[in-house]
Design a protein around this nucleic acid. Structure first.
Ligand SMILES: Nc1ncnc2c1ncn2[C@@H]1O[C@H](COP(=O)(O)OP(=O)(O)OP(=O)(O)O)[C@@H](O)[C@H]1O
Length: 891
DNA sequence: AAGATGAACATTTTT
DNA sequence: TGTTCATCTT
């Protein structure tokens, strides 16, 4: 029984799993080679064979989602109970939980609030405002975004504001040789790097940066809050100062190691300080987070820091067809600096990856939608909606494709787009709860004090904040005292207005102290501030926002359930339980004389917070706190919601697709300026990104691009991505220009690859007939360009046909139904690209329309609730596309 | 203080 | 394309 986890591993994988635990191990391997599978099996092996206690294992994943998936796999291998005991999560999540318990050792209250990127930006923006005159005078434009990312980069290197300043001083002193650059060589590739360093050399900018960095840190500290980088920094500090905190850990395993940054690596070192037992898994070719300070160097650093580190390579790819793998390798191999590596395909060639060109992004989106439909039919239903993914360079590209899918009635979900926890209605409610848990979290206070509208505007808020600083109280406390009459009212009279704020907050505090479940807290909150009315009054789309509110309650319930389960699974065997008291005493002494990090020199607030928190919240893991933490750390409710994902086409970014796989992958906009992004700093990284995207595909891969595309306002001509054209130059055979007509052989191959049953051929014929008739009826009745039956319109074909389609009029050239093939053929092949096949082969062109119009009503029904935000036309904005499925105008 | 309007403007990627 | 900011009016 216990050996089950060793089955289904090849010799190299087995070797990695059985590698002696005390010899540091690097498993380096390409995509689809089973790295994650090996990591999971190795954990099982540690538990079963080496009898390592599950709670002595620390497994680090890149995302929460990956952690959940690994948990699910381990549930099967080692059982739910043991799995629940493993310390598993992202570096951030792990740090958050360590700091909840031991935060005091590094000067933190256990009720610290995690400040998300949005709030961080707001803080920086406010600070930037103070410098705006100064900057404007010097004609410098700086956005809070760039500033924030500079700060974040400094933090990811472990640089404090002081250190940054010292560093800068030193580098200036040592005679900086400034190269003057002509504006004309902006198109040089390494230009952006220079640009970066040029910014970092501008004394004005550096002065502002350092100042804002410093004040930003002070703001966070006095708010008793940590931003994402702080979680790691304080985590490192915790282990460094109190090595005993890490003694429980006997083995650390890190997935996606190529994307760890300096601090994360430092953290890994600290956690492994006692045991020196480390296993990492990674692939340099898949390093795509350099922009977030990931350091590929960490692989070498590890060899330096952990003596006798050994490497095991996995060279067999089990995920993709050989042709997909070949094309992907051809792409990534363009990187001359890359270390070549072997990757053999386990599976046969299969259909070639497709590379297709369209007139514009609408045609591209339409093609994707209709191709998905076609493939479901052509596989007799063996492929379902959930088997398809569209991988995008950036989120905004999802809009068109989403609506194309909806027009075709294809259910879909957008992963990570406009994130759930970033919606205003969700943030409002969370802010109330954050304020309840941590009255010092000013960001939450300023957000909710006037929600719903209480007539407390900017001016009043500033008065309150000023008073709070003078009195050394939290703004919440100030406002409560004013309400109670314990403090005098302030200039713009506010006392009366607080009647709708203070009592509800007090009530919530009382509930929270009694450990009322978060879901119930939210319900109370909604009622006491009449949030539904507020939404109705202020938001056009209040109903869908109200659904998000309900979804938040659901999420809270999920978290509550998980907490119960976790508690049940690990009664009270917290790994560190034994030495907790000792540690704390030991450290309090230490803390008294030496304080803590430079940035928290703000002793006044700290003391005050300390006393308050000890009186009010002696407990660390209150349900409310756990809920808030889960909210801040999880990007997506969908990843928790199992029911959602299946049965829908997924739209997401290439970045978010890391580590995942789908039978069919579409990558749109494979164009210069998108792949690589025109603002990318590192072109090689962009290429790797495309490589990652391609290697998600198991059976079928489509790269598409358009001749012109609306970008930031105006239509732009687009060329094919150099990553692909470079491949074509060497060898055109990697890609096919025609959409495949799946043969029975293809179906069998796909079935085998996916471990499914091949469909009945009769079913295939039936579905294809149905598919053809429905698309034809649909196209005919809407005068829609007939891209559908794998009929991309070609570049260079006369633009006159589709664009001027106004609602119902039917384009004459399309009424002929299947004959539309002729249209495509008239197209002139464009520059480098041979023409896609004109006709789509037997199924589509020979099966006559049966005249069934079943699809007619499907235009706008879509599937489920899209993440629709913002208003629909309603007002004067030109044509409404609400009622007519055909798009307004394609010019 | 809040709502309404229009102009300017900018779109990577995420824990 | 959609969003954010500035300015205006109530
Ligand atoms: N020995 C094996 N036999 C059969 N299938 C395998 C084997 N090892 C892995 N696989 C399958 O290969 C696919 C890829 O595995 P996995 O996700 O672990 O790869 P990976 O190396 O982590 O990929 P990536 O680098 O893209 O994250 C999975 O579907 C997995 O089930």
């Amino acid at each position: 029984m216990s050996q089950a986890y060793l089955r289904n591993l090849n010799p190299a994988q087995l070797q990695a799993v059985k590698h002696p635990p005390d010899i540091p191990l690097q498993i380096l391997a390409g995509p689809g080679s089973g790295k994650t599978r090996v990591l999971t099996a190795r954990i099982a092996h540690l538990i079963f064979h080496h009898h390592v206690a599950p709670q002595a294992i620390c497994a680090v994943t890149f995302t929460n989602k990956a952690a959940n998936e690994m948990r699910a796999r381990l549930d099967i291998l080692v059982g739910v109970h043991d799995t629940a005991c493993i310390r598993m999560g992202t570096f951030h999540a792990l740090c958050a939980s360590f700091l909840r318990r031991h935060g005091r050792m590094v000067g933190l209250e256990t009720n610290f609030t995690i400040c998300d990127a949005d709030e961080s930006k707001k803080i920086v923006k406010a600070l930037l405002g103070e410098h705006s005159k100064d900057l404007a005078a010097k004609r410098i434009s700086l956005t809070e975004g760039t500033l924030m990312s500079m700060i974040s980069k400094a933090k990811a290197r472990g640089q404090t504001a002081d250190e940054l300043e010292a560093n800068y001083r030193r580098s200036r002193a040592s005679g900086s040789r400034k190269r003057s650059r002509l504006p004309s060589d902006v198109n040089n590739e390494d230009n952006s790097d220079d640009e970066q360093s040029q910014i970092m050399q501008d004394p004005n900018i550096m002065a502002v940066l350092i100042d804002i960095y410093r004040v930003y840190e002070r703001t966070l500290r006095s708010s008793n809050s940590l931003d994402f980088d702080d979680l790691l920094l304080f985590g490192v500090c915790l282990f460094k100062r109190n090595p005993a905190v890490g003694e429980w850990c006997q083995h650390v395993l890190v997935d996606e190691f190529q994307d760890t940054n300096t601090i994360q690596y430092e953290l890994m070192r600290q956690i492994a300080a006692a045991s020196r037992c480390v296993t990492i898994v990674g692939d340099p070719d898949q390093s795509i987070y350099g922009w977030r300070s990931a350091e590929i160097k960490n692989l070498i650093n590890m060899q330096r820091d952990f003596l006798n580190t050994q490497q095991i390579l996995l060279e067999q790819n089990y995920r993709s067809t050989a042709s997909i793998l070949g094309a992907s390798m051809a792409i990534v191999s363009q990187d001359k600096k890359r270390v070549a590596k072997t990757l053999r395909a386990e599976h046969p060639a299969g259909p070639s990856p497709m590379l297709q060109l369209f007139l514009n992004e609408h045609q591209e989106a339409g093609f994707i939608a209709s191709e998905i439909k076609k493939l479901v039919a052509a596989t007799g239903g063996m492929l379902e909606w959930g088997d398809f993914v569209v991988l995008l360079r950036f989120n905004a590209l999802s809009r068109l494709i989403e609506s194309a899918l909806q027009k075709e009635g294809i259910p879909n979900r957008i992963l990570g787009g406009h994130k759930f926890f970033e919606r205003l209605e969700v943030k409002d409610l969370l802010a109330y709860l954050q304020l309840i848990d941590n009255p010092h979290f000013v960001a939450a206070f300023t957000r909710v004090i006037n929600v719903p509208a209480r007539g407390i505007g900017e001016k009043t808020v500033n008065e309150i904040l000023g008073a709070a600083q003078r009195l050394k109280l939290s703004p919440l406390e100030v406002v409560m005292r004013i309400h109670d009459g314990a403090l005098p009212d302030i200039k713009p009279s506010v006392k009366r207005k607080l009647a709708s704020f203070v009592p509800p907050v007090r009530e919530l505090q009382t509930f929270a102290r009694k450990d009322t479940l978060p879901s119930d807290l939210i319900r109370h909150l909604l009622e006491s501030i009449k949030y539904d009315e507020h939404l109705r009054k202020t938001q056009k789309d209040w109903d869908s926002r109200w659904e998000n509110v309900q979804e938040l309650i659901n999420f809270a319930s999920e978290v509550e359930k998980n907490m119960e389960n976790t508690k049940a699974a690990e009664p009270d065997e917290q790994p560190w339980d034994g030495d907790w008291d000792v540690l704390e005493e030991f450290d309090r002494d230490q803390l008294n004389d030496e304080g803590f990090v430079e940035t928290s020199s703000d002793a006044v607030h700290k003391d005050k917070g300390t006393r308050k928190a000890r009186e009010q919240q002696p407990e660390q893991d209150t349900p409310l706190r756990m809920f808030l933490q889960a909210s801040m750390l999880s990007t997506d409710v969908a990843s928790e919601n199992k029911d959602d994902g299946k049965g829908k086409v997924t739209l997401t970014t290439c970045h978010a697709a890391k580590g995942l796989e789908w039978p069919v992958v579409f990558v749109p906009a494979v164009e210069k300026g998108t792949f690589p992004s025109h603002r990318a700093e590192d072109v090689d990284e962009e290429r790797r990104l495309l490589y990652v995207a391609c290697t998600r595909a198991q059976a079928l891969l489509y790269l598409t691009h358009a001749n012109s595309r609306m970008c930031a306002g105006e239509a732009k001509k687009k060329d094919m991505s150099e990553f692909v054209s470079a491949v074509l130059q060497n060898d055109k055979s990697y890609f096919s220009r025609e959409a495949p007509n799946l043969s029975a052989g293809d179906r069998t191959l796909i079935a085998q690859l996916l471990g499914r049953n091949a469909p009945d051929e009769a079913e295939v014929v039936r579905r294809m007939a149905q598919y053809n008739s429905s698309t034809q009826a649909w196209n005919a009745s809407y005068g829609f360009p007939n891209y559908s039956v794998a009929q991309p319109r070609l570049a260079g074909s006369s633009d006159s046909a589709p664009p001027s389609v106004r609602p119902p009029p039917v384009n004459p050239s399309l009424t002929a139904g299947p004959a539309s093939a002729a249209m495509s053929q008239s197209a002139a092949p464009s520059q480098s690209s041979p023409a896609p096949s004109a006709s789509d082969g037997p199924q589509s062109s020979t099966v006559k329309s049966t005249g069934v119009k079943r699809r007619l009503g499907m235009g706008r029904t879509g599937g489920g609730y899209p993440n629709k935000k913002f208003k629909t036309p309603g007002n004067t904005s030109g044509t409404s596309n609400e009622s007519t499925p055909c798009f307004a105008d394609v010019r």
